[in-house]
């Protein structure tokens, strides 16, 4: 059991995880953005946003969970991946409500941070990761020695 979330409540976590799986779905053995470690990283970063942004993102998470009832008769987190992705695309491309587009962008951004900001993705994308010869790491190795 990891640390409790700081930004996401139980309902918000289910919605965010369902969204994250659409942003970076699992691929074979490789995890996606809904992986526990990725959601935890996204949650920590969301909790550090200014209060106003957190409030808006919480409202958007709730709206995202319930809006699909009108179209599919089911909540967002209970839709299959294809329908969730179609619904997100619909919101992202709507031409009348900018706040819905911004909400999708905001949560998508944190799902991407969770996955591509995490070491989990580095081997898959050919990225060597941080410079372990940087003074930051040298000092810590000295401290441990």
């Amino acid at each position: 059991m990891g640390e409790p979330y700081r930004f996401l409540d139980a309902g918000g976590a289910a919605t965010f995880r369902a969204l994250a799986a659409c942003v970076v779905p699992p691929q074979g053995e490789a995890p996606g953005a809904a992986h526990d470690a990725c959601v935890a990283l996204a949650d920590r970063s969301l909790s550090e946003r200014p209060e106003r942004d957190q409030r808006l993102l919480r409202i958007f998470l709730r709206a995202l969970e319930w809006l699909p009832l009108l179209r599919y008769g089911r909540r967002f987190s209970r839709l299959d991946l294809a329908r969730r992705t179609a619904f997100l695309t619909l919101l992202e491309r709507n031409r009348s409500v900018g706040k819905l587009r911004a909400g999708v962008f905001g949560l998508k951004t944190y799902a991407l941070l969770g996955y591509y900001g995490s070491d989990l993705s580095f081997a898959e994308i050919g990225y060597p990761g941080p410079r372990l010869d940087a003074p930051y790491y040298q000092l810590r190795r000295k401290g441990e020695a």
Binding site: C22, Y115, I125
Partner: peptide
């Protein structure tokens, strides 16, 4: 830019992002 900032500039969702980011070093 680094992987996260690169990915957040990509449009859309899902397999397109994953496939394109799979070529990050290209």
């Amino acid at each position: 830019y680094f992987p996260f900032v690169t990915a957040k500039s990509l449009p859309g969702f899902g397999s397109d992002i994953r496939r394109f980011m799979g070529s990050y070093d290209h």
